[in-house]
Design a binder for these strands. Structure first.
Length: 197
DNA sequence: CAGCAGATTGACT
DNA sequence: GTCAATCTGCTGC
């Protein structure tokens, strides 16, 4: 198993990392149940200077405190009071950069993902969208702060999967961010059916 | 403390 | 296409 280490997550360029995470494999293991999926869509959130980020101008709240942890920590928060969204904290401790995982392609534990999502059979909506993939993989805001390097519950592997072209464009749902809403901080795998429309 | 908007999703007209 | 679900944080009284 080739688990990604601190060195990778603590790279200074969160936009580079958002692109580099495409094709990597997000794995969770809760109560001995292993589920995983290949990352096919991400977005970069560049901390203090990014109007779309929860940590814009180094804002600190109980929720965003985890973004100031060292790169390689999970930041999971509740959106619209309903959906748990999974992010990877990057850069060194004190710099609140993060990559939002927006979609994965299911690999292992598909039966368990169907149960968690209350679905009778697999379809492309199983892990498409940040709220959906988090539910399918069993991710919950109570796990925010988990180390992706030292825990045996949430981690990311490099399985050297050969992927096609990666495209980029503006982020989704951040219209409130003014000119920062136009930045090409969203990355996705070309022609992958699990990427949001 | 009330009001509102938000890194969303799924059910229904 | 419209709208409800309902937690977190910010603004203004």
């Amino acid at each position: 198993m080739n688990k990604i280490n601190e060195k990778f997550y603590q790279h200074k360029d969160v936009v580079y990392l958002a692109q580099a995470l495409i094709g990597k494999v997000l794995v969770t293991c809760f109560d001995s149940i292993l589920t995983s999926g290949m990352i096919v869509e991400t977005e970069a959130y560049a901390g203090a200077g990014d109007k779309a980020s929860h940590a814009y101008e180094n804002r600190r709240t109980a929720r965003t405190e985890i973004m100031y942890a060292p790169g390689g920590t999970a930041y999971i928060y509740l959106c619209y009071g309903i959906h748990h969204l999974f992010n990877v904290v990057t850069h060194r401790e004190g710099i609140p950069h993060a990559v939002l995982i927006r979609a994965v392609e299911p690999l292992e534990g598909i039966e368990q993902m169907l149960q968690r999502r209350n679905k009778p059979a697999p379809d492309y909506s199983l892990t498409r969208g940040p709220g959906s993939l988090s539910k399918a993989l069993g991710l919950h805001k109570s796990q925010s702060g988990t180390s992706l390097c030292n825990s045996n519950t949430i981690w990311i592997e490099d399985r050297q999967i050969l992927v096609g072209p990666v495209l980029s464009g503006p982020r989704i749902g951040v219209g409130y961010a003014g000119e920062d809403a136009l930045l090409p901080y969203r990355f996705w795998l070309k022609d992958n059916r699990y990427v949001s429309k």
